[in-house]
Design a binder for these strands. Structure first.
Lengths: 245, 245
DNA sequence: ATTGCTCAATTGTTCAACACTTGACAAGCT
DNA sequence: AGCTTGTCAAGTGTTGAACAATTGAGCAAT
């Protein structure tokens, strides 16, 4: 089934990867339960293997484990969002400020991320646009060249993404952020680190404020014109996962 | 020392805690193997539970998992040390710089950490001195009030500690660092954040340089022969675990 | 010396069983 | 009714045993 170079990956890790994808894609909504027996059966693995996979994701912060009560997809509180943006400000801004060396290859990827972001926004592919958005910010972290920091950042971004699955794209305007990204790239490329860091800080504050507002309003009000509020089973359409982070 | 209201902790977590303690205490040396069957037997738990515990620690970075080859205690390279100190600089200095609010209770604990450090150094209890040292730095992180950051920092410090188990106390002079800690506390307490941050930066550079030197010199230690396994000579000379980090 | 093989040891994975919690529902009480 | 108590099903926590897959090392053959 798997055509990797060498299969040297344990099944548990693969299962964790599948679940991670589902959670990040919003297929599994925050708060929804993951019963291990049916899940294991549906993926064709044993219960122990599923438990290992769940353990991985819960340590990553994507799932929350309640002893004897099962696991659920993590749910972010407003406080969590604040914490995460506090971290993003600290990590990203520091990465910019310390970017005395800017490897050409990395800068190329950054530009590609900006282009990709603009392209997908234009074609209204919001889901992919979010990916490019996050890719841009992730590449900024790479400037520091610290693998542990990159892992941590990925984890934090993952948490943020899980919590934001419920955001409806009609609430915000990802397109407005394209110029910001491009400006960030230009400033960085020109070595104007201070200005770049300042703009980034502002950008993050802006994002946090917007998301905070959305969360406060979205608490339990589909007040907007939800076409048909009828049976919303799981894993519905992709209309509800595109916020600019 | 953690007597929670109710013991509601899974066995796997407890086992992970025991192993973590052993690794951090240097009872299990970097590079040493942890065969799961004997380990599980020695702690009186099943193999599956032991696997869960090992999974936890390997995700924390304390153990390294080689597929089909077992797990070993993580071993730090020089590059790893550089990464870790890069992170410490970034995290600790930022915590100081942003410490506009300094809760009295926290400052009290910081002072206690300095005092404890001095006291244990005086009584040549090097192992405990390292604990106070790390406690001091950990409390600095608390200034930021970000739980995710605290967890990450703990993890990083844990890694550092594992790698430094082999350092012999004769190589350095923990006592010399007492005044530095006290000065840091005083500057912080007086709100002289900039000076405090600068001193901290210098302190960390100093620590890294010293540890780097030790590692470089310690590399060609008498390479012991093959694996005389089945016999864990645990908890041997405690003289080899006291470096000021 | 190199190659190929066997073989023991260890890990990866599965399965089945049991103990323990939890939540819900029904029975019994004031 | 309102409340407690008992029972029960469902799900998780843990165990123990089994088998498959992989590795490393010793040994035979070239």
């Amino acid at each position: 089934m798997d055509r990797s170079p060498i299969h040297r990956v344990s099944v548990a890790d693969q299962v964790a990867g599948i679940l991670r994808q589902r959670v990040l894609d919003g297929e599994l909504r925050p708060g929804s339960a993951l019963p291990e027996i049916p899940l294991a059966a549906s993926l064709g693995v044993s219960r122990n293997t599923m438990r290992e996979a769940v353990r991985i994701l819960s340590l990553e912060g994507l799932l929350k484990r309640n002893i004897h009560r099962g696991v659920t997809v993590a749910q972010l509180s407003m406080r969590d969002v604040q914490e995460i943006y506090d971290l993003r400000r600290m990590i990203e801004v520091q990465a910019i400020r310390g970017a005395k060396k800017r490897p050409p290859e990395l800068m190329q990827q950054l530009e590609a991320a900006v282009d990709g972001y603009e392209r997908t926004v234009r074609s209204r592919d919001w889901s992919q646009a979010v990916n490019w958005d996050l890719q841009f910010h992730t590449l900024i972290i790479h400037l520091r060249g610290n693998k542990r920091l990159e892992n941590f950042y990925q984890k934090v971004i993952g948490e943020l993404r899980v919590g934001m699955v419920l955001v409806d794209r009609s609430h915000n305007d990802p397109g407005a952020l394209v110029p910001v990204h491009r400006k960030l790239y230009q400033l960085l490329s020109a070595g104007k680190l201070k200005q770049c860091a300042d703009l980034l800080l502002q950008h993050l504050d802006d994002s946090e404020a917007r998301l905070g507002g959305i969360m406060a309003g979205e608490i339990d009000s589909p007040a907007r014109g939800k076409t048909a509020r009828g049976n919303h089973k799981a894993a519905d359409e992709s209309s509800s996962r595109a916020a600019a982070l």
